[in-house]
Amino acid sequence: MEIKKHWWKIVCMLLLFYTIMAGFLIEVPRMPILNETIRNLFFHVTMWFSMIVLLLISVINSIRYLSSQNQSHDITASEAVNTGVFFGILGLLTGSVWARYTWGAWWTNDAQLNGAAVTMLAYLAYIVLRNSIEEEQKKARISAVYNIFAFVMMLVFIGVLPRMTDSLHPGKGGNPGFNTYDMDSQLRMVFYPALIGFILLGIWIMQLKIRLKKIENSKQNEATHC
């Protein structure tokens, strides 16, 4: 194992260790309502960022699949979605437990929550679509098309529409909390490393899943040849 190829995994581990320790131990600004739950910034918001990065990887690979018809791009695209959906579920869980204790409800009609729900539904639909087509190449092509379409619509939904309404989220609308300007430098010292750490973790999980899938595929091919 050469260190040159795998250094980023070590970086990922170190950053996550740092995130978990510092995330629970550092002094955080005391905000009304938020109080200590402000630490959820390190574990909830980072999930969504990782998900978006994974979905971006997926859509890029879908575009590459359509232009090259190379099966390995399709495997990357689908495993990136699977990992992204996993991160999305974690984001929903951490978010809704937090919301129960700060907003008083598990789910609210908030622009960002709607965006999250739409994203999850669209990508679960992507997985259903993949399972409903038998033939490998057809499956790859059709799901790539849907992936690109869904990604663009999702960008509109989470990028454009929330700007036209207020949000309950801290730092948005008239809510107590931080925004990009008054986010404490202490918070940033953990938030940015946490962000990079979780994104790297997502990519790492995705790579492992891709390798597993490729082994499965080659085993299946051997079985059919015998």
């Binding site: 539904l121 639909a125 679509l129 409903s132 087509i133 999702m154």
Partner: peptide, 29 residues
């Protein structure tokens, strides 16, 4: 467009709703 996607799969009728509604929500809202 969605029905052209779903017509390629085996379970056409449910798939239109499943694929279509999430991407339709921005428009509907």
């Amino acid at each position: 467009f969605i029905s052209s996607i779903s017509s390629k799969s085996s379970q056409n009728s449910t798939l239109v709703a499943v694929l279509g509604f999430p991407v339709l929500l921005p428009l509907l809202l």
